[in-house]
Amino acid sequence: MAEAIQKKLKAEVDKYTQMQKDVSKSVSARQKLETQLAENNIVKEELDLLDTKNTVYKLIGPVLVKQDLDEAKATVTKRLEYINGEIQRYETLLKDLEKKSDQHRELLSGLQQEFQKAQGMAVGKV
């Protein structure tokens, strides 16, 4: 009885830790996105400071590739959109994960109690 519960408990704990890992992973990914967003925002603003006569380059690998300013602006805007989308996605993901982990935590505590109960019973029966 107690062993079965223990096994189950262990499995659930493993799942839970996995979930926690996922959560932390997505959190860090989100943070990265956040910094990227800030950077791109700066780039966009600074691109606005330039005028059409300025040449804009994009560093791709080892080379600087010349880009049109408008094109660069569009690219940056697109990039910003993408980042924003990503952030939103991660946000929902995080919420989901949190909910799941909360549920899981409850389940775990219930299991733990059960386990302790079983253990206590086992001890009492001996």
């Binding site: 603003e45 600074e46 804009v56 994009k58």
Partner: peptide, 25 residues
């Protein structure tokens, strides 16, 4: 001056513009 704007974007600009960028930063 060639300024690194971030995210691997570079821009060739005059010092005046560079100063603006710096101010912005």
């Amino acid at each position: 001056v060639t300024a690194l704007l971030g995210d691997n974007w570079f821009a060739k600009c005059s010092t005046k513009q560079a100063q603006k960028i710096v101010d912005h930063r």
